[in-house]
């Protein structure tokens, strides 16, 4: 059941200065195409996993770019690596390698 009303929640402002950007830098270094995303959402629209469950790869990627990596591990594990996102990306981002690199970074900086 969804909770309404007042509750203590985390500050929803992105604190860019406080955030940890190691993960982003690792992904960028190992898969430079990650930088050219324009958040068109094509990947999320076509996503096989996103079709079955709440999973938004574009949003995860932009959050990583802001240094927001909370829940990232749980979320990224929903990906099935099917590759549809790679086929629709208008910027030619190597999305599957981005996923592998994110997973690698999670293990590295855990």
């Amino acid at each position: 059941m969804k909770e309404f009303g007042f509750s203590i929640t985390k500050d929803r402002q992105i604190d860019y200065d406080q955030n940890d950007h190691r993960l982003l830098n690792f992904v960028l270094e190992n898969e430079p195409s990650f930088i050219v995303c324009i958040s068109c959402g094509g990947c999320t629209a076509t996503c096989s996993a996103g079709n079955l469950i709440d999973f938004n790869i574009r949003k995860l990627n932009i959050l990583i770019r802001r240094g927001e990596t909370e829940d990232l591990e749980r979320e990224i594990n929903k990906c099935m690596l099917c590759g549809k996102c790679m086929l629709v990306c208008p910027r030619g981002i190597n999305t599957r390698n981005v996923i592998l690199k994110i997973k690698e970074a999670i293990q590295k900086f855990r």
């Binding site: 594990n77 929903k78 997973k103 690698e104 293990q107």
Partner: peptide, 9 residues
Amino acid sequence: VRNTSSYDF
């Protein structure tokens, strides 16, 4: 990389 996906959804 070790993949920990469960796909329990």
